[in-house]
Write a protein that binds this DNA or RNA. Sequence first.
DNA 1: TTGAAAGCGCTAACAC
DNA 2: GTGTTAGCGCTTTCAA
Lengths: 344, 344
Amino acid sequence: MSIVLLAKALNLSVSTVSRALNGYDDVAADTRQRVVAMAKEMNYRPNPGARRLVSGTTRAIGVTLPMLEAGDEFIDWMYSGLLAGVSAALDGSGYYLFATSAGSRGMESEMALYRNFIEGRWADALLFVRTHTNDPRVKLAQEADIPFVTYGRTESTEPYTWIDTDNEGAFAMAVNRQLGFGHRRIALLNGPSEYYFAHLRALGYSRTLQAAGVEVDPLLIKEGQLTVQSGYNLTMQLLNHPNRPTSIVCAVDSMAFGAMAACRESGLVVGRDISIIGYSNSPISPFCDPPLTTIEHRVFENGRHVGDALLRLLNGNTQVASGYLERVTLVPRASDGPRNNVQK
Amino acid sequence: MSIVLLAKALNLSVSTVSRALNGYDDVAADTRQRVVAMAKEMNYRPNPGARRLVSGTTRAIGVTLPMLEAGDEFIDWMYSGLLAGVSAALDGSGYYLFATSAGSRGMESEMALYRNFIEGRWADALLFVRTHTNDPRVKLAQEADIPFVTYGRTESTEPYTWIDTDNEGAFAMAVNRQLGFGHRRIALLNGPSEYYFAHLRALGYSRTLQAAGVEVDPLLIKEGQLTVQSGYNLTMQLLNHPNRPTSIVCAVDSMAFGAMAACRESGLVVGRDISIIGYSNSPISPFCDPPLTTIEHRVFENGRHVGDALLRLLNGNTQVASGYLERVTLVPRASDGPRNNVQK
DNA sequence: TTGAAAGCGCTAACAC
DNA sequence: GTGTTAGCGCTTTCAA
């Protein structure tokens, strides 16, 4: 099934058919109708390769997904929601989102994939997630002059379009809640520092403590993977310390689950003897014991914004670099509480 | 950067360059070397669209990911691991795995995506995950004559290549363990029955009970989504029953987490008053309270097998339909135990 | 062993 | 308003 066959069946020229199908206005209304009807009947689909070859456009948007460092996961829970949102925004636009695994060799293999996307002209636009403080992908895309949106910011000086959640505000919120409970020794279980979000979260944490006149103790700031296991390990380290924290703020709910397990094993009752707060409001959080206080981060909505931004770029507003910072909300549950409860 | 420019720089014809690059053996060894060196130097990448146009091949493998019915997740934990395995197997083969979200309109939108993949010739091969008992995708791909592998089986009579885990064996294992603990009223929290794996798990469950001379009580078989919330809801239903189960076998760890929460809320101590066993050994399972007994299902390994099978098909062994059934192993932890402990 | 030329399916000038 | 034609970048006969 090709456009030639379609044209033949209609007794029209190929170009007329092409124009009718692509919405040009120099086609008679009834001709267009006939073409569209026949195209449907014959189940015609333009060959995207041929289209791309001549027009340089693919109708595809590429994204590579970061694997967890742990190795055997393609994508973590958060990106599930994000991509669902992007897909929802793209639905009906004619653009498709193609995701590829970045492999386990870190940024290097991710760059290789993006190079393939760009140089192989697989996609009209790109999406970068889990941005690094200094992110080579931004430069790559800018040099290749391909539209892109990042989910998360970077330190790049060149303007570009990004969507992000208010990481700094979120962790200010988390820490303020702990301060309000009377906690002073508040630990931070953060993600790898090469990610910009980790930097921003640490900033929100430190600034809020300082604003409250509480000294920032570097021993209370731990950095690890965004996994349950890592949350467990780091918390064990914290608890073995002589002057241990009475509250733990976690970069992600997974880490908080690990932290809860470590506390439990150490004989501490979470929510009474020690406070734990997560981030992301994962589906399990309401159901763990005790239910996890966390910060709701509307990933699906974020995804919609990402999708909308991509469509805007693709529709020609290429010049307009813009940023959008999504708000977060606190979801109070039972895993944290007043310091006076703490029996030290 | 096109092959024409490359040829010009080398003072060779386009066709010679093409043959040199594509490994034809009618090219002089030193010519090939020169070509390869220059291609590297000039950073030449063949345009996949053009290549596809003439050769009909794309070097891409397409997969659409099922969203959780819950709506806002792109892909659940299990498929993360699976796709990581597929990517690992494909690494270095020159093939790329492209994943698309199936949207939230169920099989219908999934079919639309696959049609796009096939009719738009986006991919050389397809991967179908979460197979249905009667799966229209299999017929679609067979009619379109495009190679495909399914992860999970279907009831199709035509032979095709599939990879699956031993669902029936896994649930026989789970039930046998519960029987060994002295349980007789063993509930099953299953996934949606349109999925073939749910059918197979129910089969493993029923047959094992029957073999042990235990009557299968339809009231103990519940069907729901593969989510924490659903596990919670269904368990609440079970517990409100007059003759409630003393053991609950879950189709997936997520459901087991919900089940544990429901039991806790109902004043039952999991592992003592009631037994719970999950399936999939998710990263949280060792860290919940009590740690969840579950069945390890090596998704990453499964993914490797899927990738290998795809490569085999792509390398011409198109005729050979084959199946591979992956073994599972039991991971005993503390969430289940002897019936005599049960205070009814 | 290499080159010339046709053509994959489509779009976009340009002519009518 | 419609048709003719060139050409996107590549592979693959076929001839030299």
